[in-house]
Amino acid sequence: MDSIPGGLTSKYYKGGFDAKMSKREASLILGVSPSANKNKVKDAHKRIMLLNHPDRGGSPYLATKINEAKDMLDK
């Protein structure tokens, strides 16, 4: 039954990353509100980045997305 994508495991967000990062996606990636202040964004980025650091078996692709998300919300 695992072969039905997004059918039964609906707890998870569907599909891949957006082609272009949006504020909404960035806030979802870092788990903060889109209007969060700089410190909150910084803390969240640090936490998520530590978990996903490529040196610790993380995926470089996810790491770039996390950095992109931070840049998006930093503005």
Partner: peptide, 24 residues
Amino acid sequence: LFQVNDRKKGGSLYIQSKVVRAKE
């Protein structure tokens, strides 16, 4: 990747979702 991004450990559900979808 699934465990590292678990929400209980301070990860983000969105990233975990992408990992799940990638595996699927």
